[in-house]
Design a binder for these strands. Structure first.
Lengths: 205, 205
DNA sequence: CGTTAACTGAACAGACCTGTACAGTTTAGC
DNA sequence: GCTAAACTGTACAGGTCTGTTCAGTTAACG
């Protein structure tokens, strides 16, 4: 009945304000951190009334949560694009490293500052539920690597598990160092180290 | 003339307030982040007048800087203690991993949340000078590892360099994941991976 | 055209932020 | 005891913070 009306109205009308808020929040939250970025700054830069923000998000914490979810989805989209170019499981693992490099490259113009998800977790207290979102994101990354390694090393599951953790440590460590230095060269080094590990694992069964 | 007087007064009298401020700031900054922790919270918990804070530190930013310097010195002290137990260069490298585990263990009761230095860097904007303090700290850690590896692999300097970077990525990556999970088991895994790498490098020259 | 939902701008509440000012108290060394 | 330094408590200035309220506007729909 009013399904198409409400649905169309929501799709055609609610989007602009919500979308502009998410785009602006993404830029500011990443560049300056979530605690240091005020609501007033976001609505002014987005050109949106404060009432519209609180019509779309019940609180700043929910906006932060939406930001984290968007970053996770964005990461997955970049990863899937990289995965399409991958020939086999070895290249699929390296696609994860390339995805991290893509993230660094995308943030370069505004000032690369490391992983946006991890940075948010770093400024939230220990029990905050938003930290769990970040924890699960990193677990997803490791699980994706593991999936490819199980194809690469079908007869050696526990070696695949250890290698997946090893590679995910390399990824996160290189990302942290790269963020401090403001460029992605550390991620390129990590990719080189990863290829050596993959070759070593494939060579000597 | 007034050197002994002023010196003694500074040692006997200025310390208490400054020290209590640093101890309290360390606890709060680590647990809740520097931006989310207000000056009033710190002075109340330290039992110190606001005037005393601004007599010892010219601004909150300087207190944050003192916090970072203290964490760096604390790390070095823990590392030196671990290094004394190390038999050779191989064990010296592992002493760095043990130092990270010590940090995680020390923060366990209040709520382990990853590397305190890296967490501060994560909530500061790109150009902030405090980020350089953290960057240099991490470069120091890698340089210490490199020094031990140059002893372990005296004839292969470029392999030592690549391995030092590899091990430092492992350290930081495991620390980040451990912080998200709230316990140090990931650091133990990283240490195991490090021993395998060290054995591999020593075995096949 | 009239309904409905999204949106706007502005004012407001109440709290918290950093940093300063000031008058007075405690403590150490002479 | 006297001086000088560190320290205390309180009040204040001038912002900024999140979140709410409200009256009025815009735009898409049947």
């Amino acid at each position: 009945m009013n399904e198409s009306k409400t649905g169309a109205a929501a799709a055609g009308r609610r989007r602009p304000a919500r979308e502009r808020l998410l785009v602006t929040a993404a830029r500011r939250f990443y560049a300056e951190g979530v605690t240091a970025t005020g609501i007033d700054t976001i609505i002014a830069e987005a050109g949106v009334a404060k009432t519209s923000l609180y019509n779309n998000f019940s609180s700043k914490a929910e906006l932060v949560r939406a930001y984290l979810d968007a970053r996770h989805e964005e990461w997955l989209a970049t990863y899937r694009a990289r995965l399409e170019e991958a020939a086999g499981p070895r290249e699929a693992v390296l696609a994860v490293f390339d995805t991290y490099a893509d993230c660094a490259e995308a943030a370069r113009e505004t000032g690369f500052r490391g992983c946006g998800l991890l940075n948010v977790a770093a400024e939230l207290p220990a029990g905050d539920t938003a930290r769990d979102v970040v924890r699960r994101h990193k677990e997803t990354v490791e699980a994706l690597i593991l999936g490819h390694l199980e194809q690469l090393l079908p007869e050696r599951p526990e070696e695949a598990g250890a290698l997946a953790e090893h590679l995910s440590f390399l990824l996160e460590g290189a990302m942290a160092r790269a963020g401090l230095e403001g460029d992605g060269s550390r991620l390129a080094h990590a990719r080189t180290l990863a290829t050596a590990l993959l070759d070593g694992a494939a060579d000597k069964p």
